[in-house]
Design a protein around this nucleic acid. Sequence first.
DNA 1: GGGACTATAAACATTG
DNA 2: TCAATGTTTATAGTCC
Length: 355
Amino acid sequence: MAPMRGERGGSPARGARASLPLPRRLIRQIARHVASSGRSLRRLEVSGRVIDNFDDIDDGSDESDMETQTAVACAGNSGNLPPADHDDDLTSLSWLQDKNLLSGINLTKSDIEDSKLISSQVVVKVKPSITPPPSSRVPSPPRTPCKAPPSPPAVNTHTKPPYSFSCLIFMAIEAAPARALPVKEIYAWIVRHFPYFKHAPQGWKNSVRHNLSLNKCFHKVAAAPGLGKGSLWTVDPQHRSSLLQAFGRQPVPPVEVEEQDTSTSVKNTPDPQLFPYLARRLADARSPPGADEYLAAATVLAMKYGPAVLDQLPPEAHLVISRCARDEHSYSGGEERRTAEALLNLAGVRPHAPS
DNA sequence: GGGACTATAAACATTG
DNA sequence: TCAATGTTTATAGTCC
């Protein structure tokens, strides 16, 4: 059955309370991953407690983690990530999507190792004690209108990103240094970050233009000299926040609900005004995620909406990742760095100056 | 059931 | 003339 947008299957954070501070295992894994990618995690704030010496973290690995699933949270990434190859579920956030705690963020393993699209990344491993491995579930595409091709051609190795066109356009424009792009550059950004569109039917460009024209969130500004045909498109500042919140309303794949113990409950739920979907999911869900899942979700929320959003979450969920801006200088081109910086800024995550 | 939102398609006008 | 861009209308799926 096709996924229903907004359909919530069950994920629940009933009783999912993390102990303070962040589990050392989680910290180890974050630090280990960042180190393995040739970068360095300079500073990690957990509920106000700053961790800046990762050498002190015991690295006694419990490789029972081999069975863990990996979630990747990207600082400052508001979703500008390529869709995951579904054959690489170990590094996909789909398990979180399926838990209905997050939606729309997927990474491939190569994305993690490449680390060119984003400025900083954190890996959080969680035990799959609740959800079956994502690979056992069929990834559900976003709702597909009847006019869309019944199934993507085999050449499409990437799935359609779970973002609306307005979100894609928003991301593209926000990632631009000047916060303005001509249509052609919006196309290019989308294709570059979501390879699905490389082979998608051409109609999507029409949809982008249609969206630009119709969506009041986007404004056309005078064409720059030498730009040639077309105008620059910008995001209306007045509608920026609504676009940001739209990220939280992206389609969520259906979840196979399992019978879970619901004897415990979460007292602190996100403000339903701010996060209606998350709040409802946490309230309604039947299978509580573990503390790690909750923390991972909180992390991505913080990165998505800014650290202040954590005020709406249980104090245990406070988690802010910061990284040294120096790490961004490895980008050869600069566009990716600017993209990363723009998205970091977008998420309210401020890199710390090197000590 | 209806409104809102979104995706898609198409027609047409404008522009370089 | 042509292709890219921009606007408008129509249709349909989904969610609330």
